[in-house]
Simulated scan of single mutants.
Amino acid sequence: MSKKETTPLSLGRVILGQNVHGFFVRTKAEPGVMARILTAAAKFNVTIINIYNSTPTKRGGSASFVVFYDFSEAMASPQEVRKAMEEAVENTEVELLEPILPGVVANTKHYPLLLLGERAIIFREAVLRGWFVGIRRRFGTGGEAFLYYEGFEAGQEIFDTYTKLGISPHDLWAMFCVALIAIGGAKDMKFEIKEGGMTLRIWENMECCLGRGSDKSFSQFLRGAIAGFASKFFKANVIVVETKCIAKGDPYCEFEVTIA
């Protein structure tokens, strides 16, 4: 895989499958601990469907992770696998995550979800479509204005958060790009700061993906977020225009930021 290639990431909060069982593991953060626990389970011919650990912790501290296994060809029961995982490492506790519905297992043990130290929530495409598309359908240009100013306020809050985290002024836009990609809002993003403003190019902007087939540039929320962030960065009022948009067939979304 080249550096530019990507692969989808399933967050694994909810897993579907008739023979799937989840395990919530509490243990210690030491080299090789997770490997020993997973090796103990692998001896029973179970297949990992999804696995992830919580926020990184200091070596020697407490740690937790969740793993979902397919038991279709397992040589032991979930209870036997749980016991083997616990016995693999001293002071390890393993809780079996029972299906909440037939064929549905969910991780309800890791709460709240955190991103950069703040509580976060996951929205699927169906919810975002109702947010970004439905409000336009219901309120027209008024809905578009609402989305823009929601984004504007969010952009200013994001700028303040990055400043509090100690991100240097030189790296603020790079952090904006990295965060947008990391949360799934875009596939890639590049920017160029120049006299009087800047240019941003964004590939697979989630908001505009939902508007494909439009006869005009579609972004309002992200355009507002860029404007809010840029107004703090440049310490001035700015105008943000989406000059290219994937919603109307362009290869990427392009935003021109001009200091007013």
Rank of each mutant, 00 (worst) to 15 (best):
F44N: 05
K190T: 14
F23G: 01
A247T: 05
F146N: 02
D215M: 09
P8M: 11
E95P: 07
L128G: 10
G17H: 09
A154Q: 11
G184E: 11
K43H: 08
G211F: 02
Y111E: 14
I51D: 00
D188P: 05
G17I: 02
E192P: 02
E125T: 15
V104D: 06
A154W: 11
F191R: 06
N91K: 13
W173Q: 05
S214W: 05
R124L: 06
M206L: 15
E144I: 02
M206C: 11
H170A: 13
G103A: 01
E144Q: 12
L115A: 09
F229L: 04
A174F: 14
K190R: 10
T108M: 03
V33H: 07
G213P: 11
F229W: 06
A41L: 12
C245F: 00
G142W: 02
W203V: 11
R119V: 15
E98G: 01
E144S: 14
I193W: 08
L16H: 15
P99F: 04
I48M: 06
H21E: 04
K3V: 14
A35L: 05
K235W: 11
D215F: 03
I48C: 03
E242Y: 04
F152K: 01
F65K: 03
A260R: 12
C245T: 02
A35V: 10
I51G: 04
R212M: 13
L128N: 09
S10E: 15
F139I: 00
G213A: 08
F71N: 11
R137S: 12
G117E: 14
A236N: 13
